[in-house]
Design a protein around this nucleic acid. Structure first.
Length: 259
DNA sequence: TATAATGTTAGACT
DNA sequence: AAGTCTAACATTAT
């Protein structure tokens, strides 16, 4: 479910709550998450985002990393003991309780020493270098849409935003990455930053079930040009949006606007 | 009942 | 060896 803008939304909200809070209790409700040890009694020092990972830095040199994968959601509850369907993890603080909801159970939560997490290759929120993108892509023949979604290359872009970025850049998602011109890479870089920053400003895209930390939906779905719009009219050219499958995922695009 | 869903990855194949 | 593709993970909704 969550891509960079959604995780960034949660991160910004958690930053206003967690730093300084002591971890009072951790409840694991899904054994798939594994054992979590050494956190109770420690204090949250910072909250950060690393691609689609949410990092909670803990006193004593530990970092807890949460990845929501496809269906994970994070809720903040003040007072009471809320019981949601599909609750998988509960972390209690003096100020309230953090709850992981995850129907499909793909989410992961791991605790590691502070500096053991690898640095990102590129994070589009800090701006993207078109030149650098082109350099990474030079030897790769995979479709540019799959390229944008490869987390080892660029961190944070998932299926919705990859489709939207390529529409905004006017590029056919099937093009081999190595075949884009410098001008085209400049468009991709520029649109990646623009699309993601707007989505952050909108607090994410709620097409089915995304909710922020306080249960509110985002508003970026109002800006979607192609995602999940198969058969609908392209607002730029009046043609029809098509859906194809790439790497097992749906890709929506406008064949006449994207060449 | 079959398909697809905002993610990642192990293993197979080239 | 490195790049790319496929199936699998678990569950719900259409």
């Amino acid at each position: 479910m969550p891509e960079l803008p959604e995780v960034e939304t949660l991160c910004r909200q958690l930053k206003t709550i967690l730093p300084g809070e002591e971890i009072l209790r951790i409840e694991i409700l899904d054994a798939r998450l594994g054992k979590i040890e050494g956190l109770v009694g420690r204090r949250v020092e910072a909250v950060k985002r690393r691609g689609k990972f949410l990092q909670i830095c803990i006193s004593g040199g530990l970092t807890a990393e949460l990845h929501l994968r496809m269906s994970g959601r994070l809720f903040w509850q003040k007072g009471g003991v809320p019981v949601f369907a599909y609750s998988r993890l509960v972390i209690a603080f003096p100020a309230g309780t953090l709850i992981l909801i995850d129907p499909r159970r793909f989410a992961t939560f791991t605790v590691q020493p502070l500096e053991s997490t690898p640095a990102l290759v590129e994070d589009p929120l800090g701006g993207l270098s078109a030149h650098r993108l082109r350099e990474i892509a030079r030897t790769r023949r995979l479709p540019v849409k799959s390229f944008l979604m490869d987390q080892r290359l660029i961190a944070g872009i998932g299926n919705i935003y990859a489709c939207e970025i390529l529409f905004a850049a006017g590029i056919d998602p099937r093009r081999p990455s190595s075949g884009l011109s410098p001008v085209e890479w400049r468009k991709v870089a520029k649109m990646s930053v623009a699309i993601l920053e707007r989505a952050v400003a909108c607090r994410g895209t709620t097409v089915s079930d995304w909710r922020d930390l306080f249960g509110c939906g985002g508003t970026n779905q109002d800006h979607l040009a192609v995602y999940a719009r198969k058969g609908e009219i392209c607002r730029r050219c009046g043609g029809r949006i098509e859906r194809i499958t790439q790497g097992g995922r749906g890709t929506w695009f406008c064949p006449s606007c994207q060449q």
